[in-house]
Design a protein around this nucleic acid. Structure first.
Lengths: 118, 118
DNA sequence: CCAATGCATTACCGTACGGTAATGCATCCA
DNA sequence: TGGATGCATTACCGTACGGTAATGCATTGG
C-alpha cells in the first residue's frame, strides 16, 4: 500500500510504474525514433485519446524525467532523455545480466551499429 | 481503459505491469540471487505481508511465466525463468540501445564476469 | 485586435489492483 | 491418526490510476 505523504518509493519503482502504461511506452518509442516531437505530432498516433489524456501522460513522463519539453512558438516540443532511462534501468538489469550474457552481446552490437537521431 | 473480455495487451505490456510492483521485483531479485527459494524463505523478506499476499504476488509472477514452481514435500520451490524476462525485455530495450552504447558495453562485461547461481 | 490554435490543468468517474481475512487442502510429524 | 504446517484460493475493501469533460492561458494569424 502507498500513502501520499510518504515518498519512500525508489527511483526504480517510479520508473517501472511509469513504464507500466502502454501508451507512455509508445510515446517513448516514438520519441526515441524521432528524437523530438510536438504534442500534436505525438497525438496523431493516439486517435483514441483526447488532448487532455495525451497531456496527462506527458506530464507523467516529464515528472519521471524521461522526457523534457521546450516551447517552440505556441507548440511544445518533447524530447527524450535517454540517459535517465538508462541510469534507472541498467542497474536493475545488471542483477540479471549473468543470465543473459549472449543476449546482451547481441544488444550491444545493435547499439554499435545504429546511431541515435539528431 | 482495459476490458476483461479483450486480451489485446501485448506480452511486453503484461510484463511491465507485472514488474511495476516493487514487491514482485524484489521477489525476482531474490530468486535471481539464490536461484530458487521456497515460499516461506521468500516470505521472510516481506514481514509486512501476510501469507496470502505473498501467494498472490507469486501467482502473478507465475502467470507471466517469470517464475516456475515445483512441489518439494509440503513446501513449494520457486525458480526464476530468466529467459522469459530476457525475451520480453531485451527486444524493447533494443529500441534504446543506440543511445546506450557505452552503458551496454559495461553491462555485457558484468554478464561475462559473473556466473548465475546453481 | 480578436478569434482560433496548441496545450496545460483541474475536477470528476469507473475500473484495476494491492492488501487482508477466511477457508480449504495436501503433507508431515508425534 | 489427528493436529500442525505450508501454501493456494476466494471474497471483499480501499486506493491509485487511466480516461473524459471543462476551463484557462499563451501564442499566432487574419
Amino acid at each position: 500500500m502507498t500513502w501520499w505523504w510518504l515518498t519512500l518509493a525508489s527511483a526504480t519503482d517510479d520508473l517501472f510504474r511509469v513504464l507500466a502504461d502502454g501508451t507512455r511506452r509508445r510515446m517513448l518509442d516514438l520519441l526515441a525514433e524521432h528524437g523530438s516531437l510536438t504534442v500534436s505530432q505525438l497525438a496523431e498516433h493516439f486517435p483514441d485519446l483526447v488532448a487532455s489524456g495525451i497531456s496527462k501522460h506527458l506530464m507523467v513522463l516529464r515528472a519521471a524525467g524521461l522526457v523534457s519539453a521546450s516551447r517552440q512558438g505556441r507548440r511544445r516540443l518533447y524530447r527524450i532523455e535517454p540517459e535517465v532511462l538508462a541510469s534507472a534501468l541498467l542497474p536493475w538489469l545488471a542483477k540479471y545480466a549473468p543470465y543473459w550474457a549472449g543476449a546482451l552481446e547481441r544488444l550491444r552490437r545493435l547499439a554499435e551499429e545504429a546511431e541515435p537521431p539528431e
